[in-house]
Design a binder for these strands. Sequence first.
DNA 1: TGCCCAGGTATCTTTTTGGGTACTATGGCA
DNA 2: TGCCATAGTACCCAAAAAGATACCTGGGCA
Lengths: 122, 122
Amino acid sequence: MKEKCLKYDICPMILVQNIVSGKWKILILWYLSYNTLRFNDIKKRLPYVTQKMLTQQLRSLEKDNLIFRKVYPVVPPKVEYGLTEVGKKIIPILEMMHGFGAEYLEQGHGKEKCAEIVNSPD
Amino acid sequence: MKEKCLKYDICPMILVQNIVSGKWKILILWYLSYNTLRFNDIKKRLPYVTQKMLTQQLRSLEKDNLIFRKVYPVVPPKVEYGLTEVGKKIIPILEMMHGFGAEYLEQGHGKEKCAEIVNSPD
DNA sequence: TGCCCAGGTATCTTTTTGGGTACTATGGCA
DNA sequence: TGCCATAGTACCCAAAAAGATACCTGGGCA
């Protein structure tokens, strides 16, 4: 495996795959690429994610050093999330993904897929 | 949700996320970006994936029109997989991912993560 | 007094994923 | 005659991910 990894240089890919998989991470990073956001701001933008899942994904992204978490010691609590310097480096990838997805949609592939998402109940 | 989707234009992102998630898909696409490959060639390059899983991921990528599957009616069976025109458009994204991953590794983040992968038994 | 807010945890159940093993087809070769 | 090769399926079980629900904090306000 070690040789395979070197030979085909898949290590970086495995790493990225590892970081970026997870049902909501790409979306979270995408939102945070515009602004830092508070927990509930993110939640509002991801109507299908449960609080638990969101917390989990955020913790994982934080652990991987892609986002930071800033807690304000106030009541009620206030927590802000944003991209770290490392995280910002992923923005161009997100933009390309967005471009690809948009083109893919235009060409009619995966229309039903998005329709599913868009037309599901609030 | 429809308005949210339009407002933040997340649809393409959800789509890409959908296509690209799945434990092995990015890696499979990465390999196929060099050559078309036979089933067992892919399997050899992904020592941890079981036959069932690989079949599953390939079917899913085929359904999303990113790869084609060409069956030669010979015995023993011969099946080739390769990127479609749509699939080829994702190559630049894969290359950026690779670049990001490599840089991330160089900076020491996620060293342990890759170490895990590389040092696990064959 | 009791309820609200935001941003969580804790616990339980369900669903989805993944792994293991066995089985298939068919022509060629010993 | 029996065995090999490749690219799968079928079936069952284990593990992981996701969902539902309840609970916590502590200051402000009715």
